[in-house]
Each structure stands twice: as structure tokens, then as C-alpha cells.
Design a protein around this nucleic acid. Structure first.
Lengths: 112, 112
DNA sequence: TCCATAGTTCGGAAATCTTGAACTATATCC
DNA sequence: GGATATAGTTCAAGATTTCCGAACTATGGA
């Protein structure tokens, strides 16, 4: 019997979503300040619930998508629910807009 | 006579300011996504023209301030003019807002 | 001329980002 | 049940970016 070094931060069916009051403006802007993440957000606007694969251009490596979704989740921009063997992602528009009024709207308006 | 390795990108009295059409949304957000740079911007809102030293908390190293101002300049957020032995920085509010309408206002409104 | 002030450039250490490989977890087919 | 496929995470290491002290350029004033 082999001991493994891999560990999960928590149970895989309960991902951690921050309270928006604990997200700084700099952290929120940092999450938005990346072309891949802006693309993920744009896709989630068009189609409000997507699994990880579908929320990114298909050339993007899985581990990269996973990291970008972690950043978006940590910034309170995305919520993730486990559904069967996939994770469904949604924008936390209401929560995010309550914390940073107008910010996401203004970013989306300027992304063309 | 000693040859030096130090070089300036251009004449020191003519700093490069980008045309805002060449600034991407991701680059603009990246420039905004840093506590030190947000602080610089806030100071320039309060006091519209400041030299490098005055645009940052006084504990910040000079080379660090210089780098942050480069990032802000490259994002079209700050313009710099040489005046005697100092460089006076100003926000390019009008230019930036023409390129990214509402974005800077919404960031400033959310920075408290 | 010499000194002080203002800011840039360089280089190396530190932090962060990217991504393939190995892994966990769940579903589906026999 | 077992084998296989699919979805996504974790790890590790290379690549990239950021930070900042030291050396430098540039200007102003005594």
C-alpha cells in the first residue's frame, strides 16, 4: 500500500467561496486583469452556467483553466457547484456588484 | 575615460506616452490591480500634479515607485512631464475615459 | 566646482504564473 | 462488481514578472 502526496484542501464536493466583504478592490481587479479570465467571464455572461472545459477556449490546458477559475472564485466573481462529475460555474453578479457597484458592468461594457 | 553600461530608452526629457487605442482592457486592469498603484492614483486625484516621491507612501523605495509609474504610464493612466530636476505626473482622465468609459470612475468610486 | 535632490537603470533574489504528469472522483458500459 | 472514460485537481519545475538595493544620469543651487 502506497502513501500518496496528493491532498485536497477540503472535501471535493464543497468548494470554498469567499464572503465578498473579504475581497479587496486590488484582488478583484487582479482577477479581472487577465485575457483568459476576461474570456471566461464573457462566456459566462453569454451562457450563465458552464463547466470548466466549456468556460475556456479549447486549446487551454486543464490545469490552467483550473487555476484561472480558482482566481475568479477567490475574488468572489465565480461560484462553482459540483454536479455529477463536472463543476458548474456561474458568475456571482449580484454579490460582486453589491461589493463593487458598477465595476463588473463597466468592465463588461469595455470588453469588445 | 570609462564606458558605462547604463542606457536610457530615449532622451530623458521626452517620456513615451502610448496612444490609448493601443492599450488593451487587460493591460488597463492590470495597471489598476495593485494596492501601491491604486494609492498613487488616489493621490493624483486629490492633488492633480505630483512628482514621483510625493505620489507614493514615503517608505516605498525609489526604484519601486519608478516601476509603478512606468506601468501606469504604459497603460495610459498617467502622463509625466519633466520640470527642472523632477517629473510631474498627472492622470490622463480624459484620454483614459474616452478609451474605457466609466472604468476609472467606477474603480475610484469603489476605492475607499 | 562641488554637493544635494530627483529619478532611472541594472541585476539578482523573491514571488507568481504556466503547464505536463500524476492523481482523485464520478459515471457509464459491460 | 470491474474496467474504462470523463472532469477536474494537485504537484513540481521551468518561465515570467515583480521588488528593491546599488550604481548611475541629470539638473539646480551654493
Amino acid at each position: 500500500m502506497e502513501m500518496t502526496n496528493y491532498s485536497y484542501i477540503g472535501p471535493m464536493d464543497r468548494l470554498v467561496h469567499p464572503n465578498l466583504k473579504d475581497v479587496s478592490l486590488a484582488a478583484a481587479l487582479h482577477a479581472l486583469a487577465d485575457p483568459v479570465r476576461l474570456d471566461i467571464i464573457a462566456r459566462l455572461v453569454d451562457c450563465p452556467s458552464l463547466n470548466a472545459g466549456a468556460s475556456c477556449a479549447q486549446a487551454t490546458p486543464k490545469s490552467t483553466i483550473s487555476n484561472h477559475l480558482n482566481v475568479l472564485r477567490a475574488a468572489g466573481l465565480v461560484e462553482t457547484k459540483v454536479e455529477g462529475r463536472e463543476r458548474i460555474n456561474r458568475l456571482r453578479c449580484v454579490d460582486f456588484d453589491a461589493r463593487f457597484p458598477g465595476l463588473l458592468a463597466s468592465v463588461l461594457a469595455n470588453k469588445g
